[in-house]
Amino acid sequence: MSAIILFTAVSVAQLMLTTAMAISSVRMFYGPRAQDRIVGLDALYVNSMLLLVTFGIGTGKTVYFEAALVIGLIGFVSSVSLAKFLMRGEVIE
C-alpha cells in the first residue's frame, strides 16, 4: 500500500517538476533580455536538482543526493559568474 502511494506521488511530482523545467527553458529561449535568460537557467537547475531528489525517493537510492548537491554547487557558481558578466562585461577582472 505504502509503495503504491509513494510511487503515485513521486510520479506526479516528477511530472510537475519536468513541466516546470520545460517552462523555465521556454523562458530561457524567448526571454526578452539576457537577465531573463539567466534567471531561467537558475530556475532550470533548481528544478532539475529537485527532480533528482525525487528520483532518489522513488528508487530508494542515496546516490542521487550527491548528484543533486553537485548540481546545486555548480549551478550557483555559473549563475553568479553570468550575473557578474552582465554587470561588468567580464568574469575575471
Binding site: 506521488a9 506526479v12 511530482a13 510537475m16 513541466t19 516546470a20 523545467m21 517552462i23 523555465s24 521556454v26
Partner: peptide, 20 residues
C-alpha cells in the same frame, strides 16, 4: 512523505508558471 513531495513540486510548478 507523499504530501511533502507533492507540495514541494506544486510550489516549484507554480513558481515556473509565474516566471512565464
Amino acid at each position: 512523505v507523499a504530501f511533502f513531495v507533492l507540495a514541494g513540486a506544486a510550489l516549484a510548478l507554480i513558481g515556473a508558471i509565474g516566471f512565464l
